[in-house]
C-alpha cells in the first residue's frame, strides 16, 4: 500500500497541486498565453499615443507626462489581477472538474490561495512585457516608482482578489449564468476609482463613494507621485485598511455562498 500524508490543517502541498494544475493548463495552450499579453499591450499602445499627442499640445499634460500610461498599467494590474483569479476559477467550471475538487481534501481556503497565486502568475506574464513596451515606445519606466510601486501593487492586487473571490462565490452559488460578472464587475470601479482623472472632478456625493474604494487612493497616489513628486503614504495606509476590510468581507461572503451552494446542490450541477 502506498504511503499517504494526512494534513488536516492548511496544506502547502495541496495549494501547490492546484498551482501545478493551472500551470499545466496555461502552458498547454498558446492562445491562453497570448491573450494574457494581447489586451494589456493594446491598451498601452492606444493610451500611450493619446498621451503623446496631448502632451505635445497642452502645457499641464506635458508636465504630467506619463500619468495616462501609468494609469493604464495600474488599471491593468487591478483588472487583470481579478480576471486572472476569476478565469482560473472558471476553468474548473468549464472543465466540470469542480465536483472532483470539492470532494477531494482540498479546503476552500487552499483553493482560494492557489487562485491568488495564479492571478499573480498570469498578471506577471501579461504585465512584465507591457512595462517593457512602455519603456521602449514612450520612455515610461514603471519601475522608476521604486517602493511606491510595491505599495500600489499590493493595494491593487488585494482589491482584485477581493472582487475575484466574491465573483467566484456568486458563480458557485448561481452557476455559469453569473459568469459575465467575472468580465464586467471590475468596470464598475473604472469611473468611480478615478483611474484617469482626479477625484476632484467628481460631484461631491460621488467623491464620498470614490473614497470608499481602495483603488481610488492608489490612483490619487500615483498622480501625486508623478505630478507633485510626493509619495503619499497616508493614502497607501488608508487603502490598505480598506482592503483589509474588503478582503475579509469577500472571504466571508465566499464561504457563505459556498455553504448555500452545498445546501442547494449546486456543486453537482455546475452548468448554467
Amino acid at each position: 500500500m502506498s504511503e499517504r500524508l494526512v494534513e488536516t490543517g492548511l496544506s502547502a502541498r495541496r495549494i501547490g497541486a492546484m498551482i501545478l494544475r493551472y500551470w499545466y493548463l496555461l502552458t498547454s495552450s498558446w492562445p491562453r498565453l497570448l491573450e494574457l499579453i494581447y489586451w494589456p499591450a493594446l491598451q498601452l499602445v492606444t493610451w500611450g499615443f493619446l498621451q503623446t499627442y496631448i502632451s505635445q499640445n497642452a502645457g499641464f499634460f506635458a508636465r504630467a507626462g506619463g500619468t495616462f500610461i501609468g494609469a493604464v498599467i495600474l488599471w491593468d494590474i487591478l483588472f487583470r489581477g481579478q480576471l486572472g483569479f476569476s478565469i482560473s476559477f472558471l476553468e474548473e467550471m468549464w472543465a466540470r472538474n469542480l465536483g472532483n475538487l470539492m470532494m477531494s481534501p482540498l479546503k476552500p481556503i487552499e483553493f482560494l490561495l492557489s487562485l491568488m497565486v495564479m492571478s499573480v502568475v498570469r498578471l506577471a506574464i501579461g504585465i512584465i512585457p507591457v512595462t517593457g513596451l512602455a519603456i521602449a515606445f514612450f520612455g515610461f519606466n514603471l519601475y522608476g516608482f521604486g517602493l511606491a510601486l510595491a505599495a500600489f501593487f499590493c493595494n491593487l492586487i488585494l482589491t482584485s482578489w477581493a472582487v475575484g473571490i466574491v465573483v467566484s462565490g456568486l458563480v458557485l452559488r448561481n452557476g455559469l449564468g453569473a459568469e459575465s460578472l467575472a468580465w464586467t464587475l471590475m468596470f464598475l470601479l473604472l469611473p468611480l476609482a478615478c483611474v484617469y482623472y482626479p477625484v476632484s472632478v467628481l460631484p461631491g456625493w460621488l467623491q464620498a463613494v470614490a473614497w470608499l474604494l481602495p483603488p481610488t487612493y492608489v490612483f490619487e497616489g500615483m498622480r501625486a507621485l508623478m505630478i507633485d513628486h510626493a509619495m503619499r503614504l497616508d493614502l497607501m495606509g488608508q487603502a490598505l485598511a480598506l482592503n483589509a476590510v474588503l478582503f475579509v468581507g469577500a472571504v466571508a461572503i465566499f464561504l457563505r455562498l459556498l455553504r448555500d451552494a452545498r445546501r442547494l446542490g449546486a456543486l453537482i450541477q455546475t452548468g448554467e
Binding site: 494526512v6 502541498r13 497541486a17 501545478l20 499545466y24 493548463l25
Partner: peptide
C-alpha cells in the same frame, strides 16, 4: 486539456499520496 499523467499527478498531490 491536461494529459492523463498531469491529471493523476495533481489529484495524487491533493490526496496526499
Amino acid at each position: 486539456r491536461l494529459t492523463v499523467r498531469q491529471n493523476l499527478s495533481v489529484f495524487g498531490r491533493l490526496y496526499g499520496v
